[in-house]
């Protein structure tokens, strides 16, 4: 049976069911559209897009590991959706950045060395147990939501367009993280203890997210100064933690410099796994 026959046979099962299984691709900006129709970014804009893309790529790589391992099947699907969204953001940012250097998203993902990556340490942190992943999601998605919201007004039209789609998705990721933080924070003694522990091990990587770089200052009107997001981020996180019976831990801050290519020890392993197959076959198409 070919696919047209299959579709016809499936369509014969009635309208009510057909309407509940209607499938449309939607009309969103895709990496392919950016590759073909996108304007070439300046060197600085490309470097900025690369930082956003690297964060998303490494986070997606981490999140994708959950699929088939989540606490409940419904959560396999939820984390899968989030990982797919984030990977989509990574592909858009990397595709756009690559236009400046005649490189594809895959050139940038698979053929750069560890110190060429600009990801933040928070996204490199291991998944740990479900609570650790949720706190990492809370920290990052609240940050990304604020950042992408601002970037929808960027003077760079492509960045603004990518973020217009991404911000809606990240809003959902943020909500997902908040719902789980509340439930695990207030659920049982055990879950509350696990959440406190998660906060303690991840909090040292918070400040790095808000470090302003020379690059951000140069791109006035295009990039967002990370430090400008701190107040709103603190306010929102404090509110969520208060609602969850949790508080900000008294930990120090790590001297992290992911943006400068100095990474946590985890990134090497992440890249080894991600790049191994592609690098075995230079020049291959898949």
């Amino acid at each position: 049976m070919n696919h047209d026959e299959l579709d016809a046979e499936l369509d014969s099962f009635g309208d009510a069911l057909a309407s509940a299984t209607r499938v449309t691709p939607g009309n969103a900006l895709r990496p392919e559209d950016i590759a073909v129709g996108g304007a070439k970014p300046s060197e600085d804009v490309a470097r900025y897009a690369l930082t956003l893309g690297d964060d998303a790529l490494i986070l997606a790589q981490r999140l994708s590991h959950w699929i088939s391992r989540a606490p409940e099947l419904e959560e396999d699907i939820a984390l899968g959706n989030i990982a797919l969204d984030v990977l989509g953001h990574a592909r858009s940012f990397l595709t756009y950045a690559g236009l400046a250097w005649d490189k594809t998203e895959d050139d940038l993902a698979y053929w750069r060395e560890e110190d060429d990556f600009t990801s933040l340490w928070i996204v490199e942190q291991p998944n740990g147990h479900f609570g650790v992943t949720i706190i990492r999601q809370l920290i990052v998605s609240v940050f990304q939501h604020l950042l992408y919201s601002k970037l929808t007004e960027s003077a760079d039209e492509t960045l603004a367009a990518i973020c217009a789609k991404a911000v809606k998705e990240v809003d959902y990721h943020r909500d997902h993280a908040i719902q789980w933080t509340i439930r695990l924070g207030l659920g049982t003694e055990e879950s509350a203890a696990k959440m406190r522990h998660a906060l303690e091990i991840l909090w040292p990587y918070v400040d790095e997210m808000f470090q302003d770089l020379e690059l951000h200052r140069k791109l006035d009107g295009i990039a967002v100064l990370p430090s400008s997001l701190r107040e709103a981020w603190d306010k929102e996180i404090n509110a969520v933690l208060a609602d969850s019976g949790l508080e900000i831990p008294k930990t120090g801050q790590a001297m992290a410099n992911g943006r400068g290519g100095e990474h946590s020890e985890h990134l090497g392993f992440i890249l080894a796994e991600m790049q191994v197959l592609a690098r075995k076959h230079p020049g291959a198409s898949w």
Partner: peptide, 28 residues
């Protein structure tokens, strides 16, 4: 609204979210 199926969730809020993830992955 047409019946699509069922799922498990701890409470109503999570049920709506799980339903979104499970039954509307393709713009349904």
């Amino acid at each position: 609204h047409v019946h699509a199926g069922s799922l498990h969730a701890p409470d109503a809020q999570m049920a709506v979210r799980n339903a979104r993830d499970l039954y509307t992955r393709r713009n349904e």
